[in-house]
Write a protein that binds this DNA or RNA. Sequence first.
DNA 1: TGTACATCAGTGAACGCGCGTTCACTGATGTAC
DNA 2: TGTACATCAGTGAACGCGCGTTCACTGATGTAC
Lengths: 200, 200
Amino acid sequence: MSRIAEKRDAQREALIDAAERAIAETGLAALKARDLAAATGISLGGLYNLVGDLDEVVLRVATRTLARLDGVLADSGAGAGTPTERLVAMALAYCRFARDNLALWRALFEHRMASDSVLPDWQTQSQWSAFAHISAPLRDLLPGGDEQERVLLARTLFSAVHGVIALGLEEKVVAVPVEALEKQVGKLVRALCAGLTSGA
Amino acid sequence: MSRIAEKRDAQREALIDAAERAIAETGLAALKARDLAAATGISLGGLYNLVGDLDEVVLRVATRTLARLDGVLADSGAGAGTPTERLVAMALAYCRFARDNLALWRALFEHRMASDSVLPDWQTQSQWSAFAHISAPLRDLLPGGDEQERVLLARTLFSAVHGVIALGLEEKVVAVPVEALEKQVGKLVRALCAGLTSGA
DNA sequence: TGTACATCAGTGAACGCGCGTTCACTGATGTAC
DNA sequence: TGTACATCAGTGAACGCGCGTTCACTGATGTAC
């Protein structure tokens, strides 16, 4: 790799760094090419030498966010304990991740709405490792069930937890006590697991 | 009310009708003042004699949508049966409403992101009657619990169902079989109710 | 080492588009006499 | 009933702003001799 290519790569990284910081601070909607250029010391035109598109920047940031989330979920679900407690731990980890990375996390879901072209490949499942991480404890919880069934259930479980967190973190006006949210999430997962095992 | 005021009111209604149709067909993001004027036969400038703002139009449409949803939820939860089955019926009704009014339903949640001013009063709880409708069956299900606790639980239950439906209806590419979604929603609510009663 | 030339990353002014909102005007409707 | 005038809903061209993207240029860097 030539010196020039190295510099380009470094600049591109700096660009993504700046975009990540900008989204984290002011949200996806406030991400502007001019601001990004100013923040990195790159000229407006030069930005398009590093990146084809503003969308590409957003996509790269989203990929990073998903990678971090993946790590968090993998760690949180790795511990010992009952399947239920492992699922609870993962849900709480997701909750904390969402709170700590609020704008970046939201960006994952806002972006899809904008680009009406081919949706950016994540959310199609490939990048969403959440389901994969959920699968293991779920298999321990319901060893008898159909595998196909369990895949759907993993998605449902994730969606339910996601819904509670998304709506719980929504109101910006009043600062919702985070502990209350975590408590509800824990309650949800525990009740669900109890209901699933008793009913099956 | 003078003849002129009557005409104004009729035009305003026609305007909201057109906006509702437009959102239902092409989504909130595609709602343009010019299109709305053209669709109703009102001139672009005249539109602002009927309405202060495009936001006001959106808000009025959202209010209508919420009112319809309110009716659907009230009806679906009114039947006899166990508390669990009533909650299941309401969740399925919500699922069907979301599917049948996809864009209008999405508009309820997309709008909040846009207007950074005072949030439009719904979603603050007042207009969201969903929680109120859920409360009754929930009281029957858990007669012992704290009322304060139950309010939180109603919100959590709704959010969980909402999450499953929202993510389930998301992928536009592949047409997800609706029956599968309804099945998962039913499963979720049943498992939750079972878990809540056994655990308490 | 020095000189002339070529390349190309870097620049920012300008383009182009979309779109909500305004405003000077007009023509139909209503009123006074 | 007719005539002159006032009002005001209705009009659409124009304003204003935001913003992603392009492109003609320039100046630093590298190369050839």
